[in-house]
Design a protein around this nucleic acid. Structure first.
Length: 776
DNA sequence: GTAGGGTTAG
């Protein structure tokens, strides 16, 4: 044997091979020298493949270079494949199949193969495999036995794992550890602790399992206690604690612990540590921190594996550098896995770039439920509810059997339906749950409450709230916001008291909702009291208060409150003041607010229109013209809103002057007839406001033109003479004063109840009256 | 050769 070869083999034995080059060299020499026990050396070589993260293809090549491998070599290969990840598992099964059916006695499966096989088989194969190893007499082997028990502990039924555990004549620490992790996994905290306490001997893995258990159940205090008490730690223990902090949103604590880890020289962060820290930094969304972390990683020359790069993509996306995220993604090439693709989709949706997200989605080599959820929620959160639902339908008609919508999908879908105000579709979603046996968790319930509220069905919202087994602050907030949008202020306030009684503290959102409710109901006194009870009011609470004071005519107080604010007022604050100034005809305050708004959001046409309306109401036409001129000069275009009507499970959208709908002609006919009737009955003095042709409406610049009219017209057309039932129209902008009057008249003429949802407010029109008399 | 830690969607 040549000297360099002997040296290399020693290196191989002591597992200190450093790179693929060295590995290849060794392989070539083993083959060249036709060594005795070649299988043995090659096995060692393959074991080294794991160490240096050799690619699958290379290990496979080594494997193929041996004409008659024995079972020892095969086991090494199987082990290597199993560590590469699920996408290589089918190679393992096919190899195993070959071995089993081979007549070569060197290839008889032995006890070493089964633990590997069991570990990768997944829950569906435990039973047959269990029977199989039992029949072959391997079930008494320590490692096989542990693998089977661990399987049951992980995938259930946990009781069966316990049974095997109890039947063991000689339990090793590994068996105890498997059992403890199993109990944690299934939520049996007490059993896990009891087992841990009664262990005759513990090792670092037992302790770490406890740290992980507490962390995953959100009990970080105990997790840290166990962590601090550990007689000795490993890098895994540190990672367990760090990930506990990361996943429970204790970002600061995590970073502090990480610093401590860096200071103590005993443990160097490994790749997992970095992944965890990067994800903590992503959660924080702090670009400065991200930058220093990246330079720290660069400085240490950390090997960037697939996990780290994916985490980096996520971090950059969340810290505002989408381009860097994309760059890493592009550079990954074949290193990309499904999660990297998904991370890139969410990177785009989080930055509102739905086109790019869609492109990535379409290019993906394979998709899972997370891919679909990312894109669906992306559409839902960026105001494209209809698209979100279309995508969901596509998902449910996709042939892939392993692809089933889950709770997270449904949260997005329900929310999308809620935004469309499509109650019937929402009810269809409920049927979908039952049919597909999707369990309802607290988030799904919460989204249902929001959906029912948004669709105007407070009874269903209340029912859902009462039905749910446990409620959190979001459940309360959803229902309170529902009451608020329906002008049911008293119920909103009562519910806030109730949540306090149940021990749930109102948060920023709760106060927002209740203050909004008070504002809409004109409950000035209660509103002030609630505002005073907020420990540290946020800027939005100030905006609500300005709105409340403004609506109730206390404009000077509103202005004073703005002056007293500890922070710089944002557009919402001045917007509220501007509205109030218009209603109460306070030109000077209106001008002040409007000009602040022109600075804060120069593109928003609504502010110009509002100020112009104030001038118009006082017949100051020169000033009206001045504002028009300002808009022209700044290139501000009046934004137009859509109106939706849900009909027979489909949502119909209309925009100002819309002639694209197939019923367009009928709709305009109905609207004209109604207009004539209004004039004949003397409802309106000026016929121009009801008989205007849609084409004229398009030309109109300043006065709101009405997609709601078209939507209501459509509803009347499709419902024919049937005068029962409620017409639901959803508009995504503020219903203007003109429109409000118009709908009142329609409701009286056709004798029907018309519900219009305008942003988050509901207007119920009946017999020529509107439920929201505070309407501006 | 067992058992403990990691990235994406709400």
């Amino acid at each position: 044997m040549s000297d360099p070869l002997a040296k290399l083999l020693t290196i191989c034995r002591t597992s200190k091979l450093s790179d693929l080059k060295q590995l290849k060299q060794l392989h070539a020499q083993i083959i060249q020298n036709s060594l005795h026990h070649q299988d043995y050396w090659i096995s060692l070589l393959i074991q080294q493949c794991t160490q240096i993260r050799a690619p699958f293809s290379y290990a496979h090549l080594i494997f193929l270079s041996i004409p008659n491998p024995n079972v020892f070599l095969l086991t090494s290969v199987l082990k290597f494949y199993s560590q590469l990840g699920p996408q290589y598992h089918h190679h393992i099964f096919s190899l195993f199949h070959q071995i089993r059916h081979s007549s070569n006695h060197h290839l008889k499966p032995d006890a070493f193969i089964y633990p590997i096989l069991i570990k990768i088989s997944g829950k569906n194969s435990i039973n047959p495999l269990h029977g199989h190893v039992f029949k072959l007499g391997f079930a008494s082997d320590h490692f096989v036995r542990n693998a089977i028990m661990d399987m049951y502990a992980k995938y259930g039924p946990i009781n069966l794992a316990r049974q095997l555990f109890d039947e063991m004549p000689d339990r090793k620490i590994a068996d105890w550890n498997s059992m403890i992790s199993g109990y944690w996994k299934w939520g049996y905290q007490e059993e896990a602790s009891r087992l841990f306490e009664s262990m005759p001997e513990k090792n670092v893995i037992s302790w770490t399992a406890m740290v992980t258990g507490y962390s995953k159940s959100g009990d970080l205090e105990n997790a840290r206690k166990v962590f601090d008490e550990m007689p000795d730690k490993s890098v895994v223990s540190w990672n367990a604690m760090l990930s506990g902090y990361a996943q429970n949103d204790f970002v600061e604590e995590g970073l502090k612990l990480f610093e401590k880890m860096m200071d103590s020289c005993d443990f160097k962060p490994d790749e997992t540590t970095w992944v965890t820290i990067i994800s903590s930094c992503a959660a924080k969304g702090d670009p400065q921190l991200a930058k220093s972390l990246v330079s720290s990683i660069d400085r240490r020359k950390i090997n960037l594996n697939c996990f780290i790069k994916t985490a980096l993509i996520d971090m950059h996306a969340k810290c505002g550098s989408l381009e860097t995220a994309r760059q890493i993604f592009d550079e990954m090439g074949v290193q990309r896995n499904l999660v990297s693709w998904n991370a890139m989709i969410s990177a785009y949706t989080k930055n509102g770039d739905l086109m790019s997200a869609r492109k990535i989605f379409n290019e993906m080599p394979e998709k899972n439920v997370v891919s679909w959820n990312s894109l669906i929620s992306g559409y839902a959160q960026n105001g494209q509810s209809a698209m979100a639902i279309e995508l969901f339908k596509e998902m449910t008609t996709t042939k892939a059997i392993y692809l089933k919508p889950d709770q997270i999908t449904m949260v997005s879908v329900i929310s999308a339906y809620g935004h469309l105000g499509a109650l019937e579709l929402g009810k269809w979603a409920m049927d979908f749950f039952t049919k597909n046996q999707i369990k309802l968790n607290i988030s799904v319930y919460n989204s249902l409450i929001s959906m029912y509220s948004r669709c105007g069905s407070m009874e269903d919202a209340k029912k859902t709230f009462q039905e749910m087994p446990t409620r959190d602050v979001i459940s309360y907030n959803s229902l309170i916001a529902g009451f608020a949008s329906h002008g049911r202020a008293t119920e909103a306030i009562e519910l806030m008291s109730k949540m306090k009684e149940e021990g749930i503290e109102p948060d920023r959102i709760t106060f927002m909702a209740v203050l909004t409710a008070c504002s809409h109901a004109g409950l000035s006194k209660q509103g002030r009291e609630i505002f005073k009870s907020i420990r540290k009011p946020a800027i939005d609470h100030y905006a609500c208060m300005v709105d409340l004071l403004g609506r109730t005519g206390q404009l000077d107080e509103a202005k004073m409150l703005i002056d007293e604010m500890p922070m710089k007022p944002h557009a919402g604050v001045y917007g509220a003041l501007l509205n109030a100034s218009r209603v109460h005809k306070r030109v000077e305050l209106g001008e002040l607010a409007a000009y602040k708004l022109f600075e804060l959001e120069p593109e928003n046409s609504g502010n110009y229109v509002l100020l112009s309306n104030i001038y118009a109401s006082m017949e100051r036409w020169e000033d009206v013209e001045k504002i028009r001129e300002l808009m022209r000069k700044r290139g501000v275009k009046k934004t137009t809103g859509w109106s939706w009507v849900e009909f027979e499970g489909k949502v119909h959208r209309f925009i100002v002057g819309d002639r694209s709908h197939k019923y367009s002609e009928e709709i305009n006919k109905v609207l004209k007839e109604l207009g004539k009737k209004m004039i004949d009955l003397g409802y309106v003095a000026d016929k121009s406001c009801v008989l205007r042709d849609v084409e004229e409406e398009e030309k109109e610049e300043m006065v709101g033109t009405h997609s709601e009219k078209l939507a209501i017209g459509f509803a009347l057309v499709v419902s024919g003479d049937d005068a029962r039932g409620v017409i639901r129209v959803v508009k995504n902008l503020r219903v203007c004063g003109d429109c409000h009057r118009y709908i009142k008249m329609i409701s009286k003429l056709v004798g029907r109840e018309i519900v219009v949802r305008d942003n988050n407010r509901f207007h119920c029109f009946k017999d020529g009256e509107c439920s929201c008399e505070d309407y501006w």
